[in-house]
Simulated assay, not measured.
Amino acid sequence: MGAMAAACVLALVFALALTCVGTPAGGTAGTTGRPVTHAAAARADEECTDPEKQTLSPSRADGETIEAIKNRRGEKRKLIVGVDQNSYRWGYRNPNSGESGRLEGFDIDLVHRIAEDILGDADAVQFKAIPTDQRIPAIQDGRVDMVVRTMTINCARMEEVAFSAPYFRTGQQVLAPKSSPVEGYDGTLANRRICTAAGSTAYAKLEEDKKAGALPESTDIRTTVPNQLDCLVRLQLGEVDAVVTDAALAASQAAQDPTVRLKGEAFTTEYYGVAMKKDADDLVRRVNQILVDFREDTEDGWQSSYDTWLSATLGGDSSKSEPPAPVYARKD
Rank of each mutant, 00 (worst) to 15 (best):
T32A: 07
E299C: 03
A68Q: 08
A204N: 12
T132E: 10
L175D: 05
L12S: 12
G273M: 04
P323Y: 03
G33N: 14
D107W: 02
D241W: 03
Q253N: 08
V36D: 00
L232M: 12
G199I: 09
V148C: 09
R77F: 02
P324Y: 01
R34S: 13
A204V: 06
Q236V: 07
M276R: 02
F294T: 11
G316P: 00
L10F: 09
L310W: 05
A198M: 15
L103T: 10
R261Y: 02
T49S: 14
G26Q: 08
T170S: 15
D133Y: 14
T55L: 07
A251Q: 08
G30T: 08
L12I: 01
A6G: 14
D186F: 02
M276N: 01
F127T: 03
V260K: 01
R77M: 02
T170G: 10
I108S: 11
R102V: 14
G316W: 09
D62K: 09
L262D: 03
H112F: 05
R102G: 10
K76A: 15
C195F: 10
C155L: 00
L16K: 11
V244S: 03
Y271R: 02
R113F: 06
A124E: 02
R143G: 15
M146L: 15
G91N: 06
T224S: 03
A129N: 13
D141E: 15
T298K: 15
L79T: 02
V284K: 04
R285D: 09
R60G: 12
V327L: 04
E104F: 06
P326W: 00
R34N: 15
D282E: 04
R89M: 11
T245A: 05
S305K: 03
P258R: 01
A214T: 06
A250G: 13
P226H: 03
R73K: 15
A6T: 07
T37D: 05
A129T: 14
F106S: 05
T49P: 01
A15H: 11
S57Q: 10
D145R: 01
T19Q: 12
A25H: 00
D117F: 06
